[in-house]
Design a protein around this nucleic acid. Sequence first.
RNA 1: CGGGGUGUGGCGCAGUCUGGUAGCGCAUCUGCUUUGGGAGCAGAGGGUCGUUGGUUCGAAUCCAGCCACCCCGACCA
Length: 442
Amino acid sequence: MRLSRYFLPVQKEVPSEAQIVSHRLMLRAGMIRQEAAGIYAWLPLGFAVLEKIKQIVREEMNRAGAIEMLMPTLQPSELWKETGRYEAYGPEMLRIQDRHERELLYGPTNEDMITEIFRAYVKSYKALPLNLYHTQWKFRDETRPRFGVMRGREFLMKDAYSFDLDAAGARKSYNRMYVAYLRAFSRMGLKTIPMRAETGPIGGDLSHEFIVLAETGESGVFCHQDLLDMPIPGEDTDFDGDLEPIVQQRTALYAATEDVHDQARFEKEVPPEKRLSARGIEVGQVFYFGTKYSVPMKAVVTGPDGKDVPIEGGSYGIGVSRLVGAIIEASHDDKGVIWPDAVAPFNVAVVNLRSDDAAVSSACETAYDQLQKAGLDVLYDDTADRPGAKLSTLELIGIPTLLVIGPKGLKAGVVEVKDRRTGVTEEMPLEAAIARCARKGS
RNA sequence: CGGGGUGUGGCGCAGUCUGGUAGCGCAUCUGCUUUGGGAGCAGAGGGUCGUUGGUUCGAAUCCAGCCACCCCGACCA
């Protein structure tokens, strides 16, 4: 993408309403625009990050055996009346009437609908286990939206739903999601800790929240220090195999959010030097809720013994739009965002320091062309701005690697490769720099 | 939903107390000069002062209602 042709409305000054760093940086970097309280338009740069996150989640869900689909944003109230949640949800649910005065709602989640779909088609235990997921916009009419996309009213969420014949099967499904989440968040450059958590209005009795530690986190968290440095299960993980040891390794250590925190137990189970109390952002949650929906909605399958049994269910959410903010909270400096490579809107920016210099522009075009051919997302700053302005903007928007090409260096036969995170600049010939960028970005 | 605050060019603000036909910085546009860390000079464009009503010869300014947004709390992916 040529910057001169792109839509990147960056700002030096920030609207005064933005308080936390991720919100301020997202506004300044031209990623989002607020259209109403807690409702945002995703501008090209923000959208690019959102798509990267979505794709990582998709790959890890698929790896774990979940199957992607798409459910609508609007749902009929009847489904929710069947489960009793139409009343239980309260004013947080956005209720809408169509022209026939039919009651609809903008879905805050999809357990009811997926259960309806499941029961319509699945009749035999032979179809189990089954895990269906989608990534769709949700709406929860928070009384007080805040922190930008971290707590908006409209938000993009990946939600998966598992169906099993019995509790043991459901446990295996739960473990698959638990491990998939560890992998997905790790790929995004985040360290997450699964913590015991309240189940909230969705219900159930086994649940973990995946927490990113950040000073601006919305809730207090308490855990064993060792959870921070646990190994992440590899790509070769067998999701059909026994995942219990991986889950056990983590659940054996104390980890809880303030809602379910037990100080006495914390002090008893965790030695003083290993006690970590901090603040965290929830980026995902896994639930096992058993027959909470299958019983009232009569989602039953015929078992091997010929008898009908309600399925054992679980649901698994990842806050995709919230993750954009969470990643920034975890990865920024006073100059701006620092994107981890895997979610960066562009892997590398080619910076033309003198766009009116034929030799410089020619070298830039070569780099732009070759890096694209290497499969990278490349932003080519071909504008006539001054070097300082260019570098400041590219650092603000967090491009991980800058390939800086200017007349002085070129005369000496070198260009510069600058790493956003470390700030380290290395000089080398153009071809070597292209090879270096291609390696870093992949 | 309780408490507090703010609405004035795209963004950040002054002007409101003490009523007299709207101003500054940044951004934008034109021209010239500049170009290795947010350039300089000269010129230009852009605002029903959130909204409705009231007071007044006259309202951004005073009064009342409404709306929107932000912050603290309660609540929440």
